[in-house]
């Protein structure tokens, strides 16, 4: 070996795990690193091989957990239920098994009442190859989620994966007690390509990535009030924000619904005529709105907190 080579250890340091990227991590890595070390217990793990019964029809490979991991663990010592979607398998889309696991978890949480649920979204929406089952799964999840919230369960959604949170996933997210989102996390019902296909490139240029992000991305959702908290893209910061939101998230009931009706109504009144996210940010009084997309997370959080306090009572 060359004299130039010094005798240094060249294995990656495990200390980097704290700064590990949420966006880059797999669903399993997110779950493992988010919860207290070693505390995760999976329900119907991959060794059970409960795969989708429908992908075979399309000659598509299955995944042993069908892209949904559910289980329990501890967060800062306190018990928590957790569900995580793998955004790279079938785009994190909801299928029959994938969705049913989350439904079951939420129904259990409703029964237990005292244990919060974390949902780590990473989804393009409904899985087309089993579209009816996926659509229905989303409806069942939404009902189970609201019933759990009625029973006092806090349901916190975390969004920052590759697939974003699209289609029915966006609707489920809208039912959560609280949402945290990173810059990469996008929340929307129709995807950019879908809008472009249906309405033309003049309506929405899906290749204009800056447009996609400022219309659907985490920063806009936070500034608009569609998400309660903005976080940087590390697993550690998602963990911190999850803890915070579990504590601060509201209950659920008529007051919350009325407050949400007012919140959304006010949004339409104020921003209905805005053609672009930039107009909304300016109307909200964001100083130097053009600088928002490039802003580092910490700076953005400070700006967002000044402009709009999270409204925990209206979701």
């Amino acid at each position: 070996m060359s004299a130039l080579l010094t005798e240094t250890e060249d294995k990656p340091q495990t200390a980097w795990d704290d700064a590990a990227s949420w966006y880059e991590a797999s669903a399993r890595q997110r779950v493992r690193s988010l919860l207290d070390a070693g505390s995760f217990k999976e329900f119907i793990g991959p060794e059970q091989r409960e795969v989708s019964p429908h992908l075979r029809v399309f000659e598509l490979p299955e995944q042993f957990d069908d892209g949904m991991i559910v289980g329990r663990g501890r967060l800062s010592g306190e018990p928590a239920f957790i569900a995580a979607q793998e955004g790279r398998f079938m785009g994190g889309a909801f299928g029959e098994v994938h969705g049913a696991k989350l439904t079951g978890l939420l129904r259990a949480a409703r029964y237990v009442k005292s244990i919060p649920v974390l949902i780590l979204f990473d989804t393009g929406g409904v899985r087309l190859q089993e579209a009816n089952a996926g659509e229905l799964a989303i409806a069942e999840i939404m009902r189970a989620l609201i019933e759990a919230r009625m029973a006092g369960v806090k349901v916190v959604g975390l969004i920052g994966g590759r697939a974003g949170c699209y289609g029915g996933g966006g609707l489920i997210a809208g039912c959560c007690s609280a949402l945290a989102v990173s810059e990469q996390g996008r929340i929307s019902v129709s995807g950019p390509e879908v809008i472009e296909t249906n309405r033309g490139v003049e309506e929405f240029d899906s290749k204009d990535r800056a447009l996609v992000w400022r219309t659907m991305g985490g920063k806009h959702r936070r500034l608009l009030g569609g998400a309660d908290a903005f976080t940087s893209d590390t697993i550690q910061s998602f963990r911190d924000i999850a803890l915070h939101l579990i504590r601060s998230a509201p209950g659920f009931g008529m007051d919350v619904l009325k407050a949400e009706q007012a919140r959304l109504g006010e949004r339409l009144e104020r921003f209905s005529s805005c053609a672009d996210a930039l107009d909304i940010w300016k109307a909200e009084g964001v100083p130097d709105a053009e600088a928002v997309p490039a802003m580092p997370a910490e700076d953005f959080i400070a700006v967002a907190n000044k402009v709009r306090e999270p409204r925990y009572d209206a979701r």
Partner: peptide
């Protein structure tokens, strides 16, 4: 389907649709 437009997504269509569903589910409860 849902209205597919820039404006609707810009204003947070997912929240509006979720809110409608929530109201219906709550009413039933």
């Amino acid at each position: 389907s849902q209205r597919m437009s820039k404006r609707d997504e810009l204003l947070g269509l997912n929240e509006f649709l979720a809110h409608l569903a929530k109201c219906l589910i709550y009413a039933d409860m």
